[in-house]
Design a protein around this nucleic acid. Sequence first.
DNA 1: TTTTCATGTTAGATAATATGACATACACTT
DNA 2: AAGTGTATGTCATATTATCTAACATGAAAA
Lengths: 126, 126
Amino acid sequence: MSQQLRRSMPLLPISIVMQLTELTARQIRYYEDHDLIHPARTEGNRRMFSLIDVDTLLEIKDFLEQGINMAGIKKLFEMKNQPIVQEPKAQLTDAELRSILRIEMQQAGRFQKASLRQGDLSRFYH
Amino acid sequence: MSQQLRRSMPLLPISIVMQLTELTARQIRYYEDHDLIHPARTEGNRRMFSLIDVDTLLEIKDFLEQGINMAGIKKLFEMKNQPIVQEPKAQLTDAELRSILRIEMQQAGRFQKASLRQGDLSRFYH
DNA sequence: TTTTCATGTTAGATAATATGACATACACTT
DNA sequence: AAGTGTATGTCATATTATCTAACATGAAAA
């Protein structure tokens, strides 16, 4: 079984991550610019992604499809990593909360969630 | 948990495989030339390896360190994939068997198997 | 000694990726 | 209606990573 292959190990080049997530390189880099992911870099400055990064990207994609913007997603991630605190409502400011809720409301009547997570990678190789 | 991430999925570039296996690109390509592995190729002809390929490479490395040559390793792999047959001794010709056994014998008094499989990848990123 | 085997090394070509700039569609705001 | 902001597309240019092919080499086998 070779190594331990931790999910945090940077193993994947951006091309593979594009296939796994069905995101463009532009999108992936944009999310990095906004500090939503922090892929490792090779000595030659190439991004190298871990499986955790891939999961995060899929979450981002999902949130975006729900109409949440970069700022909202970032805050959501911060919250997720914040363990339960004695003042749970202190996590979001009122303004932040209203902002997110408003977007959620306005985007409520949405469907076609047929986003299929099964992208067939085989077609990329011969 | 994102995708299924089958162990047979071609996800890794050769640079990563080099790190995971501590083999040189030259060695990896050489083993491919000898049909011990069959990595996928991108449209641009770059090799792309699966986790199974990595496992196979680690096996090859191990066999080589035991003094077994390409032909022997190839035959061993063929055997492993050959399900149990009614004539188990029909798998190897006498000559092949003697050849392998001889090598095993002559290489018998060997030690320093301290090959640590835990290669610290962190040093490759910043 | 001469081969064979596994690997090193180098050269030249090309693919993959990086960054940065400009363009654009859409939703919101004023 | 006009203006803004956000997420993404597209293009140009630079650099890294990988490819193939050829020649070199040390150790072991014949």
